[in-house]
Design a protein around this nucleic acid. Structure first.
Lengths: 181, 181
DNA sequence: CAGAGCATGTAAGAAGTTACATGATTGT
DNA sequence: ACAATCATGTAACTTCTTACATGCTCTG
């Protein structure tokens, strides 16, 4: 029934169903759409086929609520799905869970010297401004959901804040190092 | 000639060619293989077709060094390739450059309550141990390349260290929050 | 009742993964 | 000379993206 390890998208979908009861594919989609990471695109072409796949291997069940209109399919976790969710959650984790995260800015900065110094300065200014802006948003979200009492979301947002601050700190160090030549 | 924006893998390949002169596909592969991020798999099936693609659109050139044996193709950056590299490096950057990075641990912790409390504790222990181990490795690498004087690599490693520390700090906060129930 | 936007998909194509095949070189 | 490993690929498959199609619902 459960063949290969779940992808992170599959695991997250099972997690959403576990937390928020039966959901339609569209509702799942919008959850990802509103996430502060742009890693989760929530595109239709990803979610709809994925839901069918999960149903085929028995990790979710669905029922159609056809009130005469266009079918509206609502998915919920099966017992096998809950077991698979726990298997995905628990250690051992994939290798990339503990290694350095992928960061498009860090990747580019490896080759910063390929830009002339004016462009380098522009790069660093833009990067700091962009991260600063994003940090403000995260802190605003943090305040809101702290009131809502949604603890896992609070924790995840806190992670985003700390991680973004670390990137900003790094950029500040970098700017100091660049300007001293 | 240059159609769509470069992917990060394509940009990084151009960057490697810019920094390290003409390289074979295999040499590029091993650069990625040895990177401390597991995001760069450097699999043959990714690199070889990519190099052909980059050559087709004129961003790299190649010459065959056939000394009678099996062909050995060495790629170098063209003028168009350098321009494309600079376009990829310079702002404006893709949206995901400034948003929260994708973190498999954070994603899982959103659903931590689906595990029983023993499994939760195990999760947190493993995660802290795994990150701590990785941090040690990074600091060892950091010391080595600081001596080598490879500044961009030093900076990138520094970013990995700060980011990993931020994740550890978050886990420490989390453990405190979990144990107080 | 017309248009906006919500909801449910599908099709074609891009990009990467795993697994395989095979030639060349090196160490013992 | 034989095995191990370095090096150069290819093929099939998986997963996601972009773009499209289409039905349903609500609002002015």
């Amino acid at each position: 029934m459960e063949e290969s390890p779940l992808t992170d998208l599959e695991g997250a979908v099972l997690g959403l169903l576990w937390r928020s009861g039966p959901l339609t594919a569209y509702q799942i989609r919008t959850e990802f759409l509103h996430s502060p990471t742009s890693h989760w695109s929530g595109s239709a072409g990803a979610i709809y086929p994925l839901m069918r796949r999960l149903e085929e291997i028995g990790l979710v069940g669905s029922e159609e609520e056809s009130t005469g209109r266009r079918p509206r399919r609502r998915y919920q976790l099966t017992a096998a799905g809950l077991a698979a969710l726990r298997g995905w959650l628990a250690p051992p984790h994939p290798a990339d869970a503990y290694t350095v995260l992928f960061d498009p800015l860090r990747t580019r900065i490896l080759f910063l010297d390929a830009l002339d110094s004016a462009a380098q300065r522009l790069f660093l200014e833009e990067a700091e401004a962009g991260l600063e802006r994003h940090l403000q948003e995260l802190e605003e979200i943090y305040r809101q959901i702290q009131e809502s009492g949604d603890r896992p979301a609070v924790l995840a947002t806190r992670a985003g804040i700390l991680s973004t601050r670390a990137r900003l700190q790094w950029l500040a160090e970098l700017r100091a190092a660049v300007s001293e030549d």
